[in-house]
């Protein structure tokens, strides 16, 4: 049970902090994520809109283990249209605990002002058990806000891992205004997810 909880923690830690992995040139982003299992604090800096480097500190509330990831994200491809944007990212993280503890993967999204589609596939290697994870997300904006308004997204997330061959699906409510994003997700197994992001 302990191992599964530990693995589940890794899955959650890597699945909920992928929004906006790169900022504008010279921009910084601070992300906080919290649920009943862990707290995560992730700061990244983008020297260019094409990549970001950052540090993520994780606190495992159940296993009482703290560690950090040195993270690197690279924009492989972006397609801008008048009313849409499509992105493909490579992302990776290396733990301070061990050189055998790291993750890497691909993250892609397509969005308009009304719709969002995203996917994420990654492999996590650690001292407990390696695994793969796939993640899909669809979002809908019930209204189109103007610049500076509060923007709202209704989303559905689904996750599947190679450890548990079982897909979980849960709703997410996302708000953002100005430099701040606030996201709530609810899963009957993991209870509340809270994600706060601030861009400098």
């Amino acid at each position: 049970m302990g191992i599964y909880r530990y693995i589940l923690f890794f899955i959650l830690a890597s699945a909920n902090i992928e929004a906006r992995p790169i900022s504008y040139s010279g921009g910084s982003t601070l992300m906080m994520f919290s649920d009943n299992m862990k707290d995560s604090l992730y700061y990244h800096y983008s020297p260019s809109y094409k990549y970001s480097v950052g540090i993520e500190n994780l606190k495992d509330k159940n296993l009482r283990d703290d560690y950090s990831y040195l993270r690197f994200t690279y924009l492989i491809n972006r397609k801008n249209n008048v009313h849409s944007q499509r992105n493909l990212y490579f992302q990776s993280g290396l733990s301070n605990k061990s050189s055998n503890h790291f993750f890497y993967g691909i993250h892609g999204d397509w969005e308009t002002r009304r719709w969002f589609l995203g996917f994420d596939t990654k492999k996590v290697e650690n001292r407990v058990k390696n695994y793969k994870q796939n993640h899909l997300q669809i979002g809908f904006a019930p209204y189109l806000g103007e610049y500076g308004d509060i923007h709202t997204w209704l989303m559905l997330k689904t996750k599947k891992t190679s450890i548990k061959d079982k897909r979980s699906l849960y709703p997410v409510l996302k708000f953002f205004k100005g430099n701040t994003l606030l996201e709530f997700g609810y899963n009957n197994k993991t209870e509340w997810d809270i994600h706060l992001m601030y861009r400098f």
Binding site: G27, R78, N81, E111, T112, R113, Y147, H151, F176, N179
Partner: peptide, 16 residues
């Protein structure tokens, strides 16, 4: 412009 689909994108432009 092309690709400015969200407030966050626009905010970066404003800051620039």
């Amino acid at each position: 412009v092309k690709g400015m689909v969200c407030d966050f994108c626009a905010r970066g432009i404003e800051k620039t």
